[in-house]
Design a protein around this nucleic acid. Structure first.
Lengths: 191, 191, 191, 191
DNA sequence: CATGAATGAGCGTTCATTCAT
DNA sequence: AATGAATGAACGCTCATTCAT
C-alpha cells in the first residue's frame, strides 16, 4: 500500500520541529524506517513533499473556513466563530498549524510559487471574511464605527499569531479562547 | 578599521530576506565585497555572526523597552506606549524587526542557546510589562476585570504579530497604529 | 508472446538518440508502456539488452556482408558493392547503424567484452574483404599499385564514417553514394 | 597557483578514455590528488569543465586551421595540407583529438549548446575550406569535374574518421598519411 | 588584515536492480 | 507474465570552515 502516508506524517512532524531547511530527506526516511529513494518514489522531490503537505493542510483549513460562511444572527458571531475555528485547528493539528503559519522558507515564498499562492489565498479569504463582518456590523449598528481596513488587519494579525503559538498545554486553552473573544467583543460590539 | 559593521549590515539584510539557512557565508562576503575568511576573522562562525546581530538588535529593542518603564498617568498609556514602540521599531528597523520576530531557525532555538534565551527574555519582559499594567489598571478601576494571564498573552501575540508583518508601504501605518491602540482601549478601559 | 521485441525496438531508438549512459531503464520501459521489471524478465540487465541489440544488428550486418562475398567480374565491383551495402544499411536501419558505429560506451569496449569482439570482428572482416580486393586488383593490373594496408585502413575509415553520419534527408543520398564510388574508382582503377 | 591546469589535464585523459558520462568528478579529483570541491572552485560544474576542455581544444584546432588558409600554388596542396594538419593534430594531441571527435555526449549536442555550436563551426569551416578548393580546382582545370557537395562531404567524413581513430602506434602513421593524400590526389587531380 | 585555495561532511537526487505478490 | 514498492550504491554538488601565504 505504500509508505506515502507515513512519509507525509513524518514530514509534518519534522518540518514542524526543525523547519524545511533543517530537515533532511535522510531524517524523513529514517523516521519512517525506509530508505531515502522511497521519498522520490512517492514525490518528485523534497519540495514536492513539502508542498503536498502544505496543500493538504490548507485544504482542511479552507474546508473549515468554508463551513463557517453560513448565516449567523449577529456579525460578531462570525468573528467569534473565526477565532474559535483557529483555536480548534491549533488544538486538532498543532504541527500542521505551525507549518502553515511559520515553516514555509523564504525561497518557497517567491510570488509565483504554490506556497506563496496558498498563503496569499488564506490572507485574502480571511480579509474578505473579517472585513465583511465588520462592514455589516457597522452598517447595522451592531459594531462601533471602527476603521474597516486597519481593524481587519489587526484581527488578521491576531488570528495568525494564535496559529504561530506552539501549543502550550499549560495555562488553559479554553480560558485563552474566551478571553480573546471577549477582548474583541468589547472592542467591536456596542452594548 | 575592519569590515565588521559591513558584515553585520549585510547579514541583517540577507538573513531578513532569505532566512538563516537560506543565506550563505559566500553571499554575505560578496555583499560586502570581501572574501569569506573575513567573516571568520571577525566572528567565530556563521552562527556567531547571526547571534551577534540578534543580540545587538535586542540590545536596541530592550533599551527602548526600558525607556518605556517610566511613570505614566494612566495604565492604558503604558499599553499605548508599548504598541507605539513596536510600530516605531518596525518602521525604524524593518529588517531587524523581521529577524528577531521570524528568522531564528529551529536549531538555534534549543533552550540552552542564546537565541532561545533572548526570545524568552523578550517574552518575559513584555509579559511583566503588560500584565503589570493590566493588574494595576484593574486594581485602580481604570480597566475592566479582564483575566490577566490570557489578556496578557493576547496582547503579546498582537505585538509579536505587528513585528512579523513585513513593512507594507500601502495602507497608512499611522492609521493602523491608531486603530490598534483604539481597539485595545475599547477592550480594556472603562469609560 | 511477451514484450521482448518492443523492448528491443524502444532500446534501439533510445540508445541511438541518447547514447547508452544517457538512456535509463525507466525510459525504455515507459516507451513500451510497461513497468521496469519487465526488462529484467526478458534480459539479465540493461547491458544484456544493449548487447542483444548490438548482436542482432551485427547479425544482420554480417549477413549482408556475407552475401557480398560472391564472385564479381572486377575487383572494384567488390569495393563498389561494399560501399553500396553501407549506404543501403544506413538507409534501411538508420538508428541501428548509428548504434553499431557510435554508441557503444567506453566501459563496454574493454577487450574481453562482446561489444569489443563484435566491433573487432567487423574490423577484421572489412579489412580482409577490402585488402583482398585491393591485392587481387593490383595483382591483376586492374588497380594502381597502392599500399595495401594503408589504403585498406583509409577505406575502412570512409566506410565507418558513412555509418556514423546521422541520416540526413537533405542533399540526395543517391548522388552521395555515386560520388563516393567514383571517388574511389578514380583512385584505384587504372583506366 | 591553483590546480586548474591539472584538472584540465586529468579531465582530458579521463574523458578521452571513459567518455563524459563514464567519468565521475570523484575520479577527476582523485587523478589530481585533490578533493572534489576543488573542481567546483575552478569550474561551475562538471559540464563547464568539459566545455572548457572542448573549447580550448577547438581553439588550438581552429588556430591551426586558420594558419592553413594561406596561398598555395595548387588547389590540391590545400587538401594535402588539410589532411596533413589532421594527422599532425592526432599525433600531437591524441586524447584531445578523440574528445572533439567522439566524446561529446548526446545531451550536450542539443543545438543550442556550446558543444553543438563548436562541432557545427568545425563542420562549416571544413566545408568551406574543402569545397572552396574543389571549386577552384575544377574551375582551373586542375581537378576532375567532381560533384562539389558530395565530394566535400566525403572528404569531411575521411578527415573526421582520421580524428576518430584511436592513435595506433602500429603500422606507420607516415605511410598512412602519404597513402591518404595520394588516394585523394588520384581522385581529384587530372594528370 | 586579507585572500586564494582547499576540504570534510553532508545533501538531494538518480539509477539499475530486486523481490514479494 | 507483470507490477508496485523498495533499496544500495553512487553521483554531482554545496557549504561552512580552515590554513598557508
Amino acid at each position: 500500500m505504500g509508505k506515502k502516508p507515513d512519509l507525509i506524517k513524518a514530514g509534518i512532524q519534522l518540518f514542524a520541529r526543525q523547519g524545511y531547511d533543517g530537515t533532511t530527506t535522510a531524517q524523513i526516511a529514517a523516521a519512517v524506517g525506509v530508505s531515502e529513494p522511497v521519498i522520490y518514489y512517492n514525490f518528485k522531490n523534497k519540495e514536492a513533499l513539502f508542498v503536498h503537505i502544505l496543500e493538504s493542510i490548507f485544504t482542511e483549513y479552507f474546508a473549515r473556513l468554508d463551513a463557517l460562511e453560513a448565516q449567523t444572527s449577529t456579525q460578531f458571531q462570525k468573528i467569534e466563530n473565526l477565532i474559535g475555528l483557529h483555536f480548534a485547528f491549533t488544538t486538532d493539528f498543532p504541527d500542521e498549524t505551525y507549518i502553515i503559519a511559520s515553516v514555509c522558507p523564504a525561497k518557497l515564498r517567491e510570488s509565483a510559487h504554490v506556497c506563496a499562492r496558498l498563503i496569499e489565498e488564506q490572507r485574502k479569504r480571511l480579509t474578505i471574511f473579517i472585513s465583511g463582518a465588520i462592514k455589516a456590523g457597522i452598517a447595522s449598528g451592531e459594531f462601533f464605527k471602527v476603521p474597516v481596513s486597519s481593524t481587519t488587519g489587526l484581527i488578521l494579525i491576531m488570528v495568525n499569531g494564535l496559529m504561530r503559538r506552539r501549543v502550550t498545554k499549560q495555562g488553559g486553552i479554553k480560558g485563552f479562547r474566551k478571553a480573546t473573544i471577549e477582548f474583541c467583543r468589547r472592542s467591536l460590539v456596542r452594548m
